[in-house]
Simulated scan of single mutants.
Amino acid sequence: MTGAVARAQPGTSVPVRVRPGAGRTRVGGRYDGPHGPALIVAVGAPAVDGKATEAVRKALAGALRVRPAEVSLRLGATSRDKVFTVTAPPAGWEQRLTDLRDSG
């Protein structure tokens, strides 16, 4: 398209601490990591070839009740400390995030 300007989608950053290789998927708890208070997400996928990251992205979307397409990795592709961007309107999921993160 001529003259079109690409704009970055707005979104909210969500710090996450990943626990790969868990017995089951679990979203909840707080970890004070390098990106601030993070939501702990345990997944059964191994930390190999991005499998755990993709499993976390889907688990996070499910826990926040947003579409997986509205959750993308921003930082930490090879780290257990990641930052995801959620582009869904925050009114629907921010309180859920706080409840999950602070549920311990």
Rank of each mutant, 00 (worst) to 15 (best):
R65V: 15
A8Q: 14
V71K: 01
P89M: 11
R24A: 15
A59I: 06
S79Y: 09
A47I: 09
G44H: 06
E54H: 01
V48T: 13
H35Q: 12
R26Y: 11
R101A: 08
V27T: 13
F84S: 03
V27M: 10
S72I: 09
D102V: 09
G92Y: 07
F84K: 03
Q9T: 14
Q9E: 15
A4R: 09
R7Q: 12
G50T: 11
Y31M: 01
R67K: 10
V66E: 02
T12I: 08
A63Q: 04
T12C: 01
P20H: 07
V43T: 13
D99C: 06
Y31S: 12
L75V: 13
T87C: 07
P46F: 00
V71A: 04
L60N: 02
A45C: 06
V14I: 15
R96A: 08
A22I: 01
A77Q: 13
L60W: 11
D49M: 00
T85P: 00
R67Q: 10
T98P: 00
V83P: 00
R30E: 08
P90I: 06
L97P: 03
D32R: 11
V18K: 00
E54L: 04
E70K: 08
P90G: 03
P10V: 14
D81P: 01
S103F: 02
R30D: 07
E54G: 02
A63K: 04
V71E: 03
G23P: 07
S103E: 06
Y31K: 00
P68R: 08
T87S: 15
R96E: 07
R24Y: 09
P90M: 02
K58H: 09
A55C: 03
G44E: 13
D49Y: 05
K82A: 11
V18E: 09
K82Q: 15
E94Q: 15
R26I: 08
P34W: 05
T25Y: 04
M1W: 08
